[in-house]
Amino acid sequence: MITADTILIIDDEVQIRRLLEITLNLNSFKTLLASSAKEGIAVAASYNPSLILLDLGLPDDDGVSVLKKLREWYTNPVIILSVRNSEEDIIEALDSGANDYLTKPFRTGELLARIRTALRLTHDLGKSDSQLTFGSFTIDFAGHTARKNGILLKLTSTEFSLLSILAKNSGRVLTHQYLLKEVWGHGYLDQTQYLRVFVAQLRKKIEDDPAHPSLIITEPAIGYRFGE
């Protein structure tokens, strides 16, 4: 990595901005700061940052609408920062093109990990691997196969398509709606129990300890994330 990634922080709380700035600078990211939606969009347009941290509770505009405006031209990752009990907003933001979310208060370690994953995903974009490996688990998209500890897994076609969508977007939160739409189609958007059943079946097949999953991670009330 020759040039350091630039991260735009859009948040109206000066303390949060300070904290994020220090943390990110310490971890060799460059930072840009904006305290309102208007300023945020302007700065993003001028500098095209590698990643945007967007607070949902901005004073001058609704965070989701800021996100939609950004997404008209901005292709790099956006991570949402929000307060608790706003699952609906988070889902809306994710469906509107956010890559990930974090609820305040969050731990800085967690934030850095999310930022790195998101950046890696954009760097990897276009590489289109035909095969991905996560620990003892390997998935081969071209061959429609998956192996655990080298042993070929018996998967139904639905199981495989769910697994491949999750694995292709590893590190990223996929909402229930998105998964249902991609795997089952538009008529099944409310059938979260399908997802639960298939996720449980998949976990039994691919996880080391299905009771404590490390690959398919539940994001309560929002969706799933494929871990690494």
Partner: peptide
């Protein structure tokens, strides 16, 4: 916050399907 939610009587549960493992893990 939870107390005030309770006091205001505005708790309307949002029910969805969950795996109890997920709950306990979280």
């Amino acid at each position: 916050l939870n107390m005030s939610r309770l006091e205001s009587g505005r708790i309307s549960p949002r029910l969805d399907w969950y795996d109890i493992h997920d709950l306990i893990n979280k």
